[in-house]
Each structure stands twice: as C-alpha cells, then as structure tokens.
Amino acid sequence: MISFFTRRLLHSVLLLWGVLTLTFGALHIAPGDPFDLMISPETPPEYLEAMRELYGLDAPLHQQYWRWINGVVRGDLGLSLRLQRPVRDVLADALPYTLLLSSLSMLVHFLVGTVLGVVSAARRASKLDRTATIVSVAIYSLPVFWFALMMQLLFSYLLRWFPSGGVGDVPFGWDNLGPWFLSMARHLFLPVLVLGTAGAASVARFMRASVIDALHQDYVRTAYGKGLPERLVVWKHVFRNASIPLITLVGLSFPFLLSGSIVVETIFSWPGLGRVMVEAIQARDYPVILASTMLTGSLVVLGSLIADVSYALVDPRIRAR
C-alpha cells in the first residue's frame, strides 16, 4: 500500500512537470508577448526593450524556462505582469472561491446523480425512470455556457430570485455570520445549480447502468434469499459494488468541474481561479497563466490520486494486491 502510494505520487509529480513544460512551450510558441497588448503605436521601442529586459523576456527560452522552474521549486511563482502583484497572492485570493464553488457543485453532482441513478435502476421502466432518463439526457446534451445563460435569464432577469453574479458585498465576520451566509448562498445558488446538475445528469446515467449490472449478480439473489428487504439489498449490497466504477468518475470529474467553472465563473462573475485564468490569458500574463495551470493541474492529479486510493478503500480485492 505504501509503495503503491509513493509510486503514484512520483507519477503525479512527473505528470505535473510534463503539463507545465507543455504549457510553457505553448505560450512561447504563440507569436507576440505580454507587452504587445500594453503599448500604443507611439511607445518608443527602447522602452519596450527595457521592459522586456526587466521581466527577463529577452533571455533565451531555455534560460527563462530554467529560471521559472527554479522559482516554482522554491515556491516563488513570480509577479503578475498585469496586476503587478505576486502571483501567489492572486491565486490565494481566487482559490477559496473556486474550491467553494466546485466542492458544492461536486456534492450536488454526486448526491443527486447517485440517488437518481440508483432509484431509476431499482425502479426500471417506471415513470420516474423514464422522466429521469429524458431529463438527464437533455441536460447532459446542453452546452454548459448556454445552460448557464438560460438559468441566469430565468432566475435573475425574469424571476429576479437570485443575483446574476458576483459574491455579494456582505463581509465575512463572526458577528454577521448569518447575513454573510445568506448572501453567499444566494450568490452561489445559480453557479452551483448549473455546474452541479450538468454533472449530476452524467453521474445518474452512469450509476443507473452500473446498478442494473450489479442487480443481476448472484450475490443479490443471495441477499434476497437471506430475507433482506429491497432497501437494504439495493443500498447495502448493490450500491457498494456499483459505486466502484463510479470512483473513476469522481476522479475524472475534477477536470470537468474546473473547466466548467471557467465558463460558469465568467458568466456569473465569480472571482475564482477560472476567471483569473481567463483574464490572464487575455492579457498574456505569463506567470499567472503558468501558475494557475499548475494549480488546476495539481487539483486534477490530486483528484485521480484520491480516486485510486478510494478504490482500495471500497474494494477489498484491490486492497490485497
């Protein structure tokens, strides 16, 4: 188990390094640099040269790369060209918002998805199953950005139930926890709804298939033969077995949630990582793009690492190996 874990960790580090190197390369292959967007035709070329020198962009690529990797290893992510703040601070401000949004979405995603999937499978071909199938296939096929815009149109523009974006202006404090929570909840509702249901639909489809498969196994007959009520057969004996393949989906949903949050954060002006990334890309803010890629990359790798470890927890057959 320990050696399995260290091996996986080593793989993860290598993978991350590969992702960073590719991103670095891709950024520099694209023509132009950050200052092209900041200048006007009147800017003297000498000034531009001076700026490039100041930020080290005049050095050969391998030197830039080496300098940057060196910094990363020491925990120095550099300075944002656009915001003139340490990249670390920029990311530290945005990360909690993204984590809040994605973890809540993930909760909706899997809670709604599994319950719907299991119930549909247990009551196959019932009215509930058919409705759930139609709705989830429909939601699954919608592009996230369109779904987000429609929800925004419906709930904040037409019905005016929820704010169209932002995080609200109630500051966090122990004495106004209630109002802060309420404001957060109101602002989180739409983004979580969009991100959560989009994922829940695919989880429900997946879970349904997995449960139907497990329902046909011999141990299910044994469980009924023992006199267990259907509820226990399904939620104890079938569910645990059916959820083994679901763990892969949890691991795979990390990238989906993060990339989905880029769209959702942009539409709902949510000050998270996704928005930081989009803005950095627009401004060609190299250090921020690289660092946020590294961060999301780490989260994705962490997700699959967690999935691998959870396998062993749920399935004793893997634990033994």
Partner: peptide, 21 residues
C-alpha cells in the same frame, strides 16, 4: 421466512457471496 425458516445455497459459491463484505 427467507434465510430464517427456509434457507438456500446456490451453485456458484464464487459469485454468490458479496465481494465487498
């Protein structure tokens, strides 16, 4: 009655037990 007054065993001991318990 099941498992209590009338109990049953099956042909496939390989698959008749739940692998995760």
């Amino acid at each position: 009655v099941r498992g209590n007054r009338v109990a049953m065993i099956f042909q496939e001991p390989m698959t008749s037990l739940n692998p995760v318990y």
